[in-house]
Write a protein that binds this DNA or RNA. Sequence first.
RNA 1: GCGCCCGUAGCUCAAUUGGAUAGAGCAACAGCCUUCUAAGCUGUAGGUUAGUGGUUCGAUUCCACUCGGGCGUACCA
Length: 542
Amino acid sequence: MKKYLHEIFNQASEKLAYLKDIKITFDIPKNESQGDLSSNAALLLSKQLKKPPRVIAEEIQSSLNIDKNKISKIEIAGPGFINFYFTPEFVSEIVKEILSNLIGYGKSQKYRGKKANVEFVSANPTGPLTVGHGRNAVVGDTLANLLEWVGYDVDREYYFNNAGRQMRVLGDSVKQRYLELLGNKIDFPEDYYQGEYIIEIAKKLHKDFGNKLFDENPEGIFKAKAEQEIFLEIKNTLERLGIIHKVFFNENSLYEDKKIDEVLAEFKEKNLSYEKDSAVWLKLSQLGNEQDKVIVKATGEPTYRLPDIAYHVTKYKRNYDLMVDIFGSDHNATYPDVLAGLRALGYDDSKVKVLIHQFVTITENGEVVKMSTRKANYITLDQLIDDVGADVVRYFFNMRGITSHMNFDLVLAKKQSDENPVFYLQYAHARISSIIRMVENENLKPSTENLNLLITNEEQALLKKLHQFENEVLLSAELFETHRICVYLEELAAAFHKFYTFCRIIGSEKKLAEARLALAIATRAVIKNGLTILGVSAPEKM
RNA sequence: GCGCCCGUAGCUCAAUUGGAUAGAGCAACAGCCUUCUAAGCUGUAGGUUAGUGGUUCGAUUCCACUCGGGCGUACCA
């Protein structure tokens, strides 16, 4: 419907040149009595043309060459909105479009030929993924799906560091537990990893090696085994959510491949770094940021900024048109430095899109549960999946905007899992599937011959909702907002459930039944496609 | 102190990116199953959009300040 309006506005702009001065958009009014689509063009042009908006609206209206088979009415309303009403026949055409495509319906080619990288999760292998990581994981993967739907070739990437202090502590935590298993009395430090999983890893080593590892360095087999086991578990958890990364990028490789040195040399060459107090500083104050920051410590070890910059350089060298980074809000202070560094090296930092999601507050019976991997005071993502299922986890993290400080009550989540909106969508899908099974015995086939019979309020409302899908996918991808898909699907499912209640298929007059069946099948396709983007299953039965 | 994010119905959150009368789910109340799945539908109730000012035809949305919360503010990542 929007497409058609854009067409006739384009034609009209040949006569009314000022239409080219503004971005023409069409909104869906909240109130049905304000038409199917509405333009605010006249209001936007009022100042520039020094004419009352309603006068301009009339000018625009009279210059539009409309097809009466598609548009039934145009009216000027309120302060100067132009409201368009479509004919039921035109509205029902969408069914043909959907049925001719089904599983591919909603995809667009707008970004075909472009490569995107989505980096997400990126937790270091020091412990199991927590509920907190869940939001990052789900949003990242869903975003990757969305980008694929609008044509991008997407790589999912996981960046991690298995060197450094944290990992040393991890290795020694395992060693201490191992020594404990050998019967030694240990004094397990408070700032070591307290989790049960450390003991499990120690047990495996004990089983395989007995007491032979007594003199081993904690940074050797203890650390290596811990990393291996924990990564296995992380990947396993992600896979339960349907998430598979194509690339696991190890920060260490940046050192081995001399990427760090190269970037360092380039900063020096461009006179963007200097030495002070035996550390190397990056002149961020010259690059538009607050203050200079250390990139190599006095110890000779780089701070995270340097490898982060070098890492992004490798992404540029891998020719991505779009690089999405998904971080929790605890990283919100770090990325401006990285972007500034990239800019200084001559890279176009507008290709990097950093998405910061707010933390999930976990509560249990209203009490806030504080999470810390170190203290082993956390709910693992695995436990959550066990409790509510992968579909609910995915839907839950997708359904809210990433800027919301989401609240997650564990008790409520379990108790209300039956009433979670995800079931509402899945139920709609299952209901349609059930009808399709049923009509096989009724000698009824879907047909698009008589779609013009779909004229009731419920049918028209459902059809109009279907019209929005393609655009909604595109918009969600361009705005990097996965929750829009959830909001849309809930509206679509509501429109379907109403249709289901008031418009029977089996038992209706044959031509009408065929048209309604076609509409139901089209609806099922869109629900399924939407759920696919979200990574949620679309059951045939419930 | 400074920076980023947030504050919307009892609770969890939307709001077409500045649009017309701020909407859903849950919870509450009242109805609807001999007919395609009642995990559904219909209706009622629930609001000074934290507050004050500003910008304009029009503000939940943009700006300033105040209050309240989260995360940062490292030669930790």
